[in-house]
């Protein structure tokens, strides 16, 4: 169980760090704005690198959420379900 927690936590923290870096470039109109890190990204990114950065930020956002959810909820729940279903011999 501890391993699963650490895997989920590692995914969450690393992906959230990368998301924060991407969002600080592309989703932050101003650091004094209340919409920093969550504002909409620019409609037309200047270069292909900007497009990649925005995509990476979105990817990391969902990686953080789904990764933690997978290791903290889905996998332990699956194991519990399997233990409940399989009859001990």
């Amino acid at each position: 169980m501890a391993d699963e927690f650490m895997k989920g936590f590692g995914l969450f923290s690393v992906a959230a760090l990368v998301w924060m870096i991407s969002a600080s470039w592309y989703r932050t109109p101003s650091f004094e704005s209340t919409r920093q890190l969550v504002a909409a990204p620019p409609e037309e990114p200047g270069t292909v690198f900007d497009t990649l950065g925005i995509f990476l930020g979105d990817l990391m956002f969902w990686t953080a959420l789904l990764g933690a959810f997978t290791f903290w909820v889905i996998i332990p729940a699956g194991r519990q379900a399997r233990e409940a279903l399989v009859v001990d011999e």
Partner: peptide, 12 residues
């Protein structure tokens, strides 16, 4: 080092 290298400067 990571944050200072990657985050945009925001000194107003």
């Amino acid at each position: 080092l990571l944050l200072s290298a990657t985050l945009p400067p925001h000194i107003g």
